[in-house]
Amino acid sequence: MGGLTEDPAFLATTFVVIDFEATTPKGYPAQPIEVAALALRYEEGAWTAACRPFASLIRPPAFAPVTPAVTAQTGLTVEQVNQAPSPAQALGALDRRFAAGKQYLLVAQHAATEANIIYNQREHCPALARIDLLDTIPLAKYVVPGLPSYQLDMLLAHFCIKQPADRHRAYADVDVTAQVFVRLVSAADEGGQLSDLAALVKIAGRTAKCNMPAQGGLFDI
């Protein structure tokens, strides 16, 4: 492999692939109904799972019920999510996976979606909300230019990754997004397109909203 996977900063980072399924109630931000995460590290020339995968359903608030359209896409039903842990319980359990003093980056397909959900739920997951993100879409556009689109299904087809039977469930999407991310890193590394973690972040990075400087009022003194 090339310089990227030999970079000390890259080797010191745990990459946490994350995905949410959500309802989108009118007049409110998206409300999570499922979350999954898979932590990966690159060690001794290979990718390894840093810990057990995490997945949990999440009970949405009353103003954001599971609709027939959500059920049609995800397979999740009103009955399933109504018996699920609360956002505080589910996201709190995920948040406790992140150890103080370690270096993490979240990885997501169209990371703005995950970034917004995490920010809006930040009271339940303060550690998670402070982790910056990598977006597989700009990374894919840089590494494999010229595809008709950069939706996840197109990237799966390009890399000959099998479509999961439960596509649009959080863990299934995390699993295939992780495979896409690994293929993209491998291609960029072998082609010498990215020299180190800083170059990867420059192409695909997205700052967590909690890490953005606060905007003062126009007439603040």
Rank of each mutant, 00 (worst) to 15 (best):
A22V: 06
T23R: 02
T24H: 14
P25T: 10
P25Y: 07
K26I: 10
K26Q: 11
K26G: 00
G27I: 05
Y28D: 09
Y28A: 14
P29G: 15
A30C: 10
A30N: 14
Q31C: 09
P32Y: 09
I33K: 02
V35M: 06
V35C: 10
A36G: 03
A36H: 02
A37I: 03
A37V: 04
A39W: 04
A39S: 15
L40S: 04
Y42K: 04
G45A: 09
T48I: 14
A50T: 06
C51Q: 13
R52M: 11
S56E: 01
L57Q: 04
L57T: 06
R59H: 09
P60R: 07
P60F: 12
P60T: 08
F63H: 15
A64S: 15
V66A: 03
T67G: 06
A69E: 13
V70S: 01
V70K: 00
T71I: 01
Q73D: 00
T74H: 07
L76G: 02
T77P: 06
V78A: 15
E79Y: 04
Q80V: 00
V81S: 02
Q83R: 15
P87K: 11
P87F: 08
P87M: 12
Q89D: 09
Q89E: 15
A90D: 03
A90Q: 08
A90G: 08
L91D: 00
A93G: 03
D95P: 00
R96G: 12
F98K: 07
G101Q: 08
G101V: 02
K102G: 00
Q103T: 15
Q103A: 13
V107E: 03
V107W: 05
Q109Y: 07
Q109T: 04
A112Y: 06
T113H: 13
T113I: 13
E114K: 05
A115D: 14
Y119F: 15
N120V: 01
E123L: 08
E123H: 05
C125T: 02
C125A: 10
C125Q: 02
C125S: 02
A127E: 05
I131L: 06
L133M: 13
L134Y: 05
D135P: 03
T136V: 11
I137A: 07
L139A: 03
A140I: 07
A140M: 06
V144D: 00
V144K: 03
G146E: 10
L147G: 09
L147P: 02
L147F: 08
L147I: 07
P148L: 09
P148T: 12
P148W: 10
P148M: 10
Y150P: 10
Y150H: 13
Q151H: 14
D153L: 13
M154C: 12
M154S: 13
M154I: 09
M154T: 15
L156G: 03
A157D: 12
H158F: 13
F159V: 10
F159A: 07
F159G: 06
C160Y: 06
C160I: 01
I161K: 02
K162N: 10
K162A: 15
K162V: 14
Q163N: 12
Q163A: 14
Q163C: 06
